[in-house]
């Protein structure tokens, strides 16, 4: 695995820092975020690995993972992080960058008709669209 200086200084890392308000350098990889995460089992890379890849500028690993879409934004990681790094903020920043840049929509209108009939609250539907679609 080759690490290059260019990769460490990628402008997207700066975007992520600005959007999330988090500084990944503060993380010392204790793994508390992963240990606290209620949905880590479904993730292909773990929350602390997301931060590690960002520290090393390995954006592809992060952007192509399902992790950022699995994150439930429950903020448990943020509440327990000993370094005050809000991983939920970082996940959100990564989603936003992908949705804006690539126009990926992870949720289709057709999917919604079904859940509405089951009584899913409006709030849930709205937030799902806010989170998963552009």
């Amino acid at each position: 695995m080759k690490v290059s200086t260019e990769q460490l200084r990628s402008y997207i890392l700066k975007d992520i820092a600005v959007i999330s308000g988090e500084n990944v350098v503060e993380c010392y990889q204790c793994g508390k975020c992963t240990a606290a995460c209620p949905v880590s089992k479904a993730m292909d890379i773990l929350p602390h690995q997301v931060v590690r890849f960002l520290q090393l500028g390995m954006l592809d690993e992060v952007m192509e993972s399902n992790t950022i879409w699995i994150c439930a934004s429950c903020f448990t990681c943020a509440g327990r992080c000993p370094r005050d790094v809000d991983v939920a903020n970082i996940m959100e920043a990564l989603r936003v960058i992908l949705l804006r840049k690539r126009g990926v929509s992870r949720l289709k209108t057709e999917d919604v008709r079904l859940v509405f009939s089951e009584g899913m609250p409006e709030q849930g539907v709205v937030s799902a669209f806010r989170k998963f679609a552009r």
Binding site: P38, V39, I70, A72, C74, R106, D111, G124, A128, K131
Partner: peptide, 11 residues
């Protein structure tokens, strides 16, 4: 603990 409602649409 989180109940995971944000995931109940697609997960």
């Amino acid at each position: 603990e989180c109940c995971g409602v944000y995931l109940s649409l697609n997960n």
